[in-house]
Amino acid sequence: HIECVVCGDKSSGKHYGQFTCEGCKSFFKRSVRRNLTYTCRANRNCPIDQHHRNQCQYCRLKKCLKVGMRREAVQRG
C-alpha cells in the first residue's frame, strides 16, 4: 500500500496533490478552508508521524505544505 507522505499512515489516495491518509486530508482541508493559524509550543520541528500527528497542528500543517500539498487545490466551502 501507499503511505501518507505526511504521517506515514495508510494513504487513501491522492488529495490536494499528494498521497495522504483521510486524517491528514481532512486536517489540511479544514486548516485551509477556515484559514487557521497555529502556533508551535516547541521548536517548530515536532515529529509528525502516525502516533504524533495530532500533537502539534503547526508542524503538521508545515509538513503538509513541505511535502507539496497545495492550498489552491482545496475548494472553498
Rank of each mutant, 00 (worst) to 15 (best):
residue 42 A to N: 04
residue 66 K to V: 12
residue 65 L to S: 03
residue 32 V to Q: 05
residue 3 E to Y: 15
residue 24 C to E: 00
residue 44 R to T: 12
residue 38 Y to A: 04
residue 54 N to T: 09
residue 10 K to S: 07
residue 68 G to S: 03
residue 6 V to F: 03
residue 28 F to S: 01
residue 21 C to S: 01
residue 24 C to R: 01
residue 33 R to N: 08
residue 23 G to D: 15
residue 51 H to W: 11
residue 68 G to Y: 04
residue 73 A to R: 05
residue 76 R to K: 13
residue 25 K to M: 15
residue 23 G to P: 04
residue 65 L to T: 07
residue 11 S to T: 10
residue 17 G to S: 06
residue 63 K to Q: 07
residue 74 V to R: 04
residue 4 C to I: 00
residue 66 K to T: 12
residue 3 E to V: 03
residue 68 G to F: 02
residue 37 T to M: 06
residue 31 S to K: 02
residue 49 D to A: 08
residue 46 C to D: 03
residue 25 K to A: 13
residue 64 C to S: 03
residue 53 R to T: 11
residue 37 T to D: 14
residue 65 L to Q: 12
residue 26 S to R: 10
residue 13 G to T: 08
residue 28 F to V: 01
residue 66 K to Y: 10
residue 47 P to K: 10
residue 2 I to L: 06
residue 60 R to N: 04
residue 74 V to T: 08
residue 36 L to C: 06
residue 13 G to Y: 01
residue 19 F to E: 14
residue 67 V to C: 08
residue 73 A to C: 12
residue 12 S to H: 08
residue 60 R to I: 06
residue 59 C to R: 01
residue 73 A to G: 10
residue 2 I to R: 04
residue 8 G to A: 11
residue 56 C to M: 02
residue 18 Q to R: 10
residue 4 C to G: 02
residue 33 R to E: 13
residue 26 S to C: 07
residue 2 I to K: 05
residue 44 R to I: 12
residue 26 S to V: 13
residue 55 Q to W: 13
residue 3 E to A: 11
residue 9 D to W: 07
residue 47 P to D: 05
residue 72 E to F: 05
residue 3 E to M: 09
residue 51 H to E: 10
residue 51 H to C: 08
residue 45 N to K: 05
residue 34 R to E: 14
residue 70 R to T: 12
residue 30 R to K: 15
residue 30 R to P: 03
residue 30 R to N: 10
residue 34 R to P: 05
residue 36 L to R: 09
residue 21 C to M: 00
residue 28 F to A: 01
residue 10 K to M: 09
residue 58 Y to E: 12
residue 12 S to Q: 11
residue 17 G to D: 09
residue 21 C to A: 02
residue 1 H to W: 07
residue 37 T to F: 08
residue 8 G to Q: 14
residue 54 N to G: 07
residue 74 V to M: 06
residue 37 T to P: 12
residue 1 H to R: 11
residue 7 C to R: 01
residue 12 S to G: 12
residue 15 H to E: 15
residue 41 R to V: 14
residue 42 A to Y: 14
residue 29 K to F: 07
residue 49 D to T: 07
residue 39 T to Q: 12
residue 72 E to C: 04
residue 7 C to P: 00
residue 19 F to W: 11
residue 62 K to C: 05
residue 31 S to M: 01
residue 65 L to Y: 09
residue 20 T to Q: 04
residue 71 R to E: 14
residue 77 G to D: 14
residue 39 T to S: 14
residue 40 C to G: 02
residue 24 C to D: 04
residue 68 G to P: 00
residue 12 S to K: 06
residue 20 T to M: 09
residue 40 C to F: 04
residue 61 L to Y: 07
residue 67 V to N: 08
residue 23 G to R: 09
residue 67 V to R: 07
residue 33 R to F: 03
residue 8 G to K: 14
residue 7 C to W: 01
residue 33 R to H: 10
residue 7 C to K: 03
residue 39 T to L: 14
residue 66 K to E: 12
residue 49 D to S: 10
residue 50 Q to P: 13
residue 19 F to R: 08
residue 29 K to P: 03
residue 42 A to T: 05
residue 32 V to G: 04
residue 44 R to S: 10
residue 9 D to M: 13
residue 41 R to E: 14
residue 29 K to I: 06
residue 16 Y to N: 03
residue 34 R to L: 07
residue 33 R to C: 02
residue 22 E to T: 12
residue 15 H to Q: 09
residue 46 C to Q: 07
residue 14 K to V: 14
residue 72 E to S: 05
residue 6 V to G: 01
residue 23 G to K: 10
residue 59 C to I: 00
residue 11 S to G: 09
residue 52 H to F: 09
residue 65 L to N: 05
residue 74 V to I: 05
residue 34 R to Y: 05
residue 36 L to N: 04
residue 29 K to M: 09
residue 68 G to D: 02
residue 64 C to V: 01
residue 32 V to M: 13
residue 77 G to M: 11
residue 19 F to M: 07
residue 12 S to W: 02
residue 37 T to V: 12
residue 35 N to A: 09
residue 72 E to V: 05
residue 45 N to T: 14
residue 2 I to T: 06
residue 43 N to P: 05
residue 56 C to R: 00
residue 69 M to Q: 01
residue 43 N to D: 15
residue 37 T to K: 14
residue 71 R to T: 12
residue 52 H to I: 13
residue 47 P to Y: 10
residue 33 R to Q: 15
residue 71 R to M: 14
residue 21 C to T: 01
residue 16 Y to C: 13
residue 46 C to K: 02
residue 69 M to H: 00
residue 27 F to S: 01
residue 39 T to C: 05
residue 77 G to L: 08
residue 37 T to Y: 05
residue 41 R to F: 06
residue 8 G to C: 06
residue 21 C to G: 01
residue 6 V to Y: 04
residue 48 I to L: 07
residue 32 V to R: 02
residue 37 T to I: 10
residue 68 G to H: 01
residue 64 C to E: 01
residue 50 Q to E: 12
residue 64 C to H: 03
residue 17 G to N: 07
residue 33 R to S: 09
residue 24 C to Q: 00
residue 74 V to Q: 09
residue 49 D to Q: 08
residue 51 H to G: 12
residue 62 K to Y: 03
residue 38 Y to R: 02
residue 20 T to H: 03
residue 28 F to C: 01
residue 50 Q to V: 08
residue 58 Y to R: 04
residue 53 R to K: 06
residue 59 C to W: 00
residue 41 R to Y: 13
residue 36 L to S: 07
residue 43 N to A: 14
residue 33 R to W: 13
residue 12 S to T: 14
residue 13 G to H: 05
residue 58 Y to P: 03
residue 16 Y to E: 09
residue 16 Y to K: 06
residue 16 Y to W: 14
residue 70 R to V: 12
residue 32 V to L: 05
residue 35 N to R: 06
residue 68 G to N: 06
residue 23 G to Q: 12
residue 38 Y to T: 02
residue 40 C to D: 03
residue 69 M to L: 10
residue 15 H to L: 11
residue 3 E to N: 06
residue 51 H to T: 08
residue 7 C to A: 02
residue 50 Q to C: 09
residue 64 C to I: 00
residue 5 V to I: 15
residue 26 S to K: 15
residue 1 H to V: 10
residue 59 C to H: 03
residue 4 C to W: 00
residue 58 Y to W: 10
residue 69 M to N: 00
residue 27 F to V: 02
residue 25 K to H: 15
residue 62 K to H: 06
residue 18 Q to T: 07
residue 7 C to N: 03
residue 45 N to W: 10
residue 66 K to W: 08
residue 37 T to N: 13
residue 20 T to A: 09
residue 39 T to R: 08
residue 12 S to F: 08
residue 16 Y to V: 07
residue 22 E to Q: 15
residue 11 S to V: 04
residue 42 A to R: 08
residue 5 V to D: 09
residue 3 E to P: 05
residue 10 K to T: 12
residue 56 C to E: 00
residue 21 C to R: 01
residue 24 C to Y: 05
residue 21 C to D: 00
residue 77 G to K: 14
residue 44 R to Q: 10
residue 31 S to G: 03
residue 25 K to F: 14
residue 52 H to G: 12
residue 68 G to A: 02
residue 44 R to H: 11
residue 54 N to W: 06
residue 7 C to I: 00
residue 10 K to I: 12
residue 36 L to M: 08
residue 49 D to M: 07
residue 1 H to D: 15
residue 10 K to P: 12
residue 66 K to L: 10
residue 61 L to S: 02
residue 74 V to A: 12
residue 3 E to W: 05
residue 12 S to D: 15
